[in-house]
């Protein structure tokens, strides 16, 4: 029993060490000559454009549902006019970035994990390596940088769509003009609501790309390992999103709300 615990602990430490080496190699390969621009653009399209519909629908529903859920309580307190502000602040600060990142972890991290995992199983990564090309630069750097850039962009778009969903929900029961609703939303937001929320999405994107690439690139050479890599990528990336969020909120509180 004790031996099993020690072995598990050793494996866990080895895993951390391997991730550290992978992280170091990623950074080293960003600054090596010959950046793969065409692959980077292709990944931005695959990750950003192809996730837009999913992010749009999810954000729209979240905005709509939040207004429907908040309205009775706010009405009770006579604070119905505060609904746009409440939605804007909660959605842009917290709900939008986290929900969109979780959705992307499910779609993008699993996709990257499965793709690189199957490339490993079919010896494509080994073939790239023995040909003298740099698989880290071509496969890993491009994907991690693409997720780090695309997740913030998707969050900005998702936030806007979420607020629009809230506007429609408000109009189910009340009558508020589009310009007044958005004026109230924008007026309620400050720099400290927008900037930290956007910065943390860069880290969410990095975590999604990094975990997906690490799990896929280091998967074993069996067909079942492709599924394991995809599954493990989603779980680990989702966990990291909550950890990063908790740290980001602490830092924001310390810096801006003291």
């Amino acid at each position: 029993m004790a031996e099993q615990v020690i072995t598990g602990y050793k494996r866990w430490l080895e895993g951390i060490g391997e991730q550290g080496v992978f992280f170091k190699n990623f950074f080293r390969n960003i600054f090596r000559g010959g950046f793969e621009w065409s692959e980077f653009v292709r990944q931005c399209y695959e990750i950003g454009y192809r996730s837009m519909l999913l992010v749009g629908i999810t954000s729209f529903i979240m905005g709509l549902v939040l207004i429907l859920q908040l309205r009775p309580s706010m009405l009770e307190m006579g604070a119905e006019s505060m609904l746009p502000k409440t939605l804007a602040v909660s959605f842009i600060r917290e709900i939008g970035p986290v929900i969109i990142a979780i959705i992307c972890a499910g779609k993008v991290a699993s996709g990257i994990g499965a793709e690189l995992g199957s490339m490993k199983v079919t010896e494509q990564i080994d073939a790239m390596e023995v040909s003298g090309a740099n698989p880290l630069q071509y496969l890993v750097v491009t994907r991690i940088l693409a997720t780090s850039l695309m997740i913030p962009l998707l969050t900005v778009i998702g936030d806007a769509i979420g607020l629009f969903g809230g506007y429609l929900a408000l109009n189910f029961t009340d009558d508020i003009s589009f310009s007044l609703y958005f004026h109230k939303c924008i007026a309620s937001l400050e720099f400290i609501d927008l900037f930290p929320a956007l910065v943390k999405t860069v880290f969410f994107g990095f975590a999604i790309g990094f975990v997906g690439c690490y799990k896929g690139y280091n998967s074993n050479k069996g067909t079942e390992s492709v599924g394991l890599a995809a599954n493990s990528a989603v779980v680990t990336a989702s966990l990291w999103i909550f950890v990063i969020d908790a740290i980001a909120v602490q830092i924001t509180s310390l810096l801006f709300y003291r």
Partner: peptide, 26 residues
């Protein structure tokens, strides 16, 4: 040169792109 058992072609690329890969990268 190393020829793998499966051929190990990059499955997201055409045959032309597969062959161009080592020429442009290596």
């Amino acid at each position: 040169g190393f020829l793998f058992q499966s051929g190990a072609l990059y499955d997201s690329m055409t045959v032309r792109d597969n062959l161009e890969f080592p020429l442009t990268r290596v």
